[in-house]
Simulated scan of single mutants.
Amino acid sequence: MSELVTERTTAPVYQGATGGLPPQTNLLSDRAVVTEAYTVIPRGVLRDIVTSVFPEWEGARAWVLNRPVASGATTFAQSIVEVAPGGGSKRPEPQAEVEGFVFVLAGELTIAVDGAEHVLAPGGFAYLPAGAAWTAANNGVEPTQFQWIRKRYEPLSGHTPRVVVGNEQDIEPTPMPDTNGAWRTTRMLDPEDLAFDMHVNVVTFDPGASIPFAETHVMEHGLYVLEGKAVYRLNDDWVEVEAGDYMSLRAFCPQACYAGGPSRFRYLLYKDVNRQIAL
């Protein structure tokens, strides 16, 4: 029991992108996989030469992890954005109909929205409704990195989403049923609030914990590994993943995982929810 308590009270880790280039002596083989059911982008391919510069941003670059493509996940875009000290944007979101979710991996990011400023440290997050006027700035002395998830909002009569700001470390994780707390979910948006058409969670597995069945569901996933390593079952393949890896899962891709240790396994999870299927 003492080992389990120690594991759950360890300070969280938020793996970011390292950039750079591998040495010329490296082999070309890697763990990157693209299929019609899922995509795996290992951390080793998030290099300087694959970054983009977004309009309306200064002192910033981005690794685009997901965009809607044929035979892939289509409901969202996801990027790692790195902002140098003094950088940022006064108009980060170019589309008024698009909502956003920001999750800080390293450094500090100042988000200004609804007349208030929020300084987000690692683990800090902000949900930014479609149409909200917000700005982002790195007012610190070190580079900051954050996950930026964007989705075209699907309005629902009688339900209006609000700005939500916090830190995942301040939220009590919810143990999954019949797991003795070895598998738990930190929900940063209220799962019962129909105003939200997406959820973003931090999912944690203790060593040896698993998803013991192949989840097969309509929700798409963007899954970024924050800490640890595991083996994921995707469609009919076993895929090893570690901190800094990213997975994009299309609707109905069978998925399960096993956290082999030696440390806990944690990831940031996006999914689309709470809307009827448009026909």
Rank of each mutant, 00 (worst) to 15 (best):
L4F: 13
E7H: 01
T9H: 12
Y14T: 00
Y14W: 15
P23V: 05
T25S: 15
N26H: 11
N26D: 14
L27E: 14
L28A: 14
D30C: 09
D30A: 07
R31E: 08
E36H: 08
A37P: 01
Y38W: 03
V40W: 07
R43H: 14
L46M: 15
D48P: 02
F54S: 04
P55F: 05
W57V: 01
W57C: 06
W57N: 09
W57H: 12
W63L: 06
P68G: 02
S71E: 15
T74G: 07
Q78K: 09
S79E: 12
S79R: 13
E82G: 01
G88M: 07
G88W: 03
G88N: 09
P94C: 08
Q95H: 11
Q95P: 05
A96R: 12
E99W: 03
F101V: 02
L105C: 04
G107L: 02
T110Q: 01
E117Y: 04
V119A: 10
L120W: 06
P122E: 00
G123K: 11
G123A: 06
G124I: 08
A126F: 10
W134D: 07
T135L: 07
A136E: 14
N138V: 00
F146A: 14
Q147P: 02
Q147N: 12
R152T: 14
L156N: 12
R162E: 09
R162Q: 13
V163K: 04
V165F: 08
V165R: 01
V165M: 07
G166I: 05
N167S: 07
I171T: 11
P175Y: 06
M176P: 00
G181V: 01
G181E: 01
A182H: 10
A182P: 00
T186P: 02
E192K: 13
A195K: 09
D197P: 07
V200S: 06
D206P: 01
A209S: 13
S210M: 12
I211D: 10
G222N: 14
L223I: 04
K229I: 05
A230Q: 02
Y232K: 09
W238C: 05
A243C: 10
Y246H: 14
M247W: 13
A251W: 05
A251P: 04
F252C: 04
A256M: 09
G261C: 01
G261D: 00
R264N: 00
L269D: 15
